[in-house]
Structure formats: structure tokens, C-alpha cells
Design a protein around this nucleic acid. Structure first.
Length: 279
DNA sequence: GCTCAGGCCATAC
DNA sequence: GTATGGCCTGAG
């Protein structure tokens, strides 16, 4: 087991369980995570993070990048110091960090999220991994990676339906085809937020919301503000009382209000909203 | 049975 | 531009 000494707050439970990431399972005193080809165990104690690889190379640099340890959340929240709701969420969820996920994994995860819920998304990801990914066994437990576009290339559309994806199956099918024909997800991080978003939205099944999730959680666009029905309720209750929760202007209004780190505001408000409305 | 869910897309005003 | 229904499926 290896150890990292943390110089900034990290709340592992909040960060993993706040609906931005679905490739984790509680295990022993910590979690097993999967990201791309990597599978690894994490355990958090005070200011240290203990880690061990199950597959793939895990080192301090990777983990610092994965947890965006370069972000100083106290600095990011400074402009919002007079926003009582954000400050409440900030103190309650201290150490909740945005993650830097694998873009492909993130895209598949949020494609599955359409008209769905967290238990079902998690189940979809696990089924895809168990059936089409790479499996590893350690200490009698089986782990598997989410299949890459190459590993899905020969999978029949019907098999995606059978994995429980429903109407999302044909979207994943179409996206696999586009990625294999040259659509390069990783290179979108070099584009501006609006350019990258326009590109992402050319993919089947990827609209405004899913594009913002991929941009925020994997491509480093912290100005993205994924606006789902939970956040819509929070926004209309606390910030834009003249807007309807169905208003298509809400994502833009939120980005204008919260600025270049709007995504952090989103994640804290989202977690706040979930906590107080249900789940 | 029925409704609803963290959305997209086509269609219709 | 705004609103509606269909799409898969499982849970309540």
C-alpha cells in the first residue's frame, strides 16, 4: 500500500458519491475505483490517501490529476463568499472535489444517464464492464474495466439493449461508430468551451446537458454548468425566481452568474439539492 | 396497472 | 421560441 500526503482538503465519500462518477464500489475501509484501464483501491485517513493498484499504473501524479488537486477550492469559492446557500454547501461538503475522469468512460456514463437514475446508471456501467470489458481477479473478487470503443466495435446492437441500456443503446452504438471513424474525444480539451461543446453535440444522443457533464467531469471545462432537473429546481428557488424550471435559458444564466468555475458551484448546489429533496 | 426518472430528438404550433 | 410525446426499463 502506498501513501500520499494531501495538502488540500479531500472528502473522498462526497467526491465519489455526488453523482459525477459511477465507477466505484465500497470495499473494506475504502473504495475500489475504475478509470480507463486502471482499477485501484483507495482509503482516506485525515490528510493521507492510501492507494494500491489492482490493474494499471497508479502513482501520485495520476491521483493528483484525478482529484484535480491543483484546484484550490477556497480560492474558487471566494467570489461567492456572500452567497449564503453556496457557503452553507461549502462548509457542509468541505473537500468535495470535481474529478478528472477518462473522457470515454465519462461520455458512456452520462449517455446512460438520460431519463435514468443513479442506481440504474451504475447497473448499466457494471453490466457493460462485466460483459464487454477486461476482467481481473484479486483476492477472489472480480473487477472489470468499462469497454473501450475498440472492445465495443463488434458488439451487436441487440447486445447493448440486452445490457439494459434501452433507447440509449442505439446512441452508444452510433457513438462507437463515430469514434472509430476518427472522432477524437481527448483533443476536445484543447478547444474553447463553446467549440468543444458544439463538437460533442454532433454525437447522437448528446444534447446540452450530457455535453456539459463530459466537458466538466473529464475535459477540464470548469465553466460548464450541467443543468438537470434537480439543479433547475435549486436555480429557480434560490437564484432566478422569475424563471420556469423548464426554461432553456437557465444553463446560460447560471454560467453568467457563477463565471469560469461555475461547475464547482453546480456540483455543490446539486449535492445540496439532492440532500434536501430526497436520496 | 400506472407514473416517473439527473435527456434527446422530431414534430407542431 | 416553447411545448409535447415517444423512446427502454425498473422502481414505487
Amino acid at each position: 500500500m502506498n501513501t500520499i500526503t494531501l495538502d488540500k482538503p479531500l472528502n473522498l465519500a462526497c467526491s465519489l458519491e455526488s453523482g459525477q462518477f459511477f465507477q466505484w464500489q465500497r470495499y473494506e475501509a475504502g473504495y475500489v475505483l475504475q478509470s480507463g484501464l486502471r482499477i485501484f483501491y483507495l482509503e482516506h485517513q485525515e490528510n493521507t490517501l492510501r492507494y494500491e493498484s489492482i490493474s494499471g499504473a497508479i502513482d501520485e501524479a495520476f491521483l493528483r490529476s484525478f482529484f484535480r488537486m491543483e484546484d484550490d477550492i477556497s480560492v474558487i469559492f471566494h467570489p461567492w463568499r456572500h452567497d449564503s446557500l453556496l457557503m452553507k454547501a461549502y462548509s457542509q461538503f468541505e473537500g468535495l472535489r470535481l474529478l478528472r475522469q477518462e473522457p470515454w468512460d465519462c461520455l458512456v456514463s452520462f449517455l446512460c444517464s438520460a431519463a435514468s437514475n443513479i442506481p440504474r446508471i451504475t447497473s448499466n456501467i457494471r453490466t457493460l464492464s462485466d460483459r464487454f470489458g477486461v476482467r481481473y481477479v484479486q483476492d477472489g473478487r472480480r473487477w472489470s474495466t468499462l469497454p473501450t470503443p475498440e472492445q465495443l466495435a463488434d458488439v451487436h446492437l441487440q447486445a447493448l439493449y440486452d445490457a439494459g441500456l434501452g433507447f440509449r443503446a442505439k446512441y452508444l452504438w452510433g457513438i462507437v461508430d463515430q469514434v472509430r471513424n476518427g472522432f477524437h474525444l481527448e483533443s476536445l480539451s484543447a478547444l474553447s468551451y463553446p467549440e468543444a461543446k458544439t463538437e460533442l453535440m454532433t454525437l447522437p444522443g448528446v444534447g446540452d446537458k450530457i455535453a456539459d457533464c463530459v466537458l466538466l467531469f473529464s475535459l477540464g471545462k470548469t465553466e460548464a454548468f450541467p443543468t438537470d432537473t434537480w439543479i433547475r429546481k435549486v436555480l429557480c428557488t434560490h437564484y432566478f425566481p422569475n424563471q420556469s424550471p423548464t426554461s432553456p435559458h437557465l444553463p446560460h444564466l447560471a454560467r453568467e452568474r457563477f463565471g469560469k468555475h461555475a461547475g464547482y458551484a453546480q456540483q455543490y448546489l446539486y449535492h445540496w439539492g439532492r440532500q434536501y429533496h430526497k436520496c
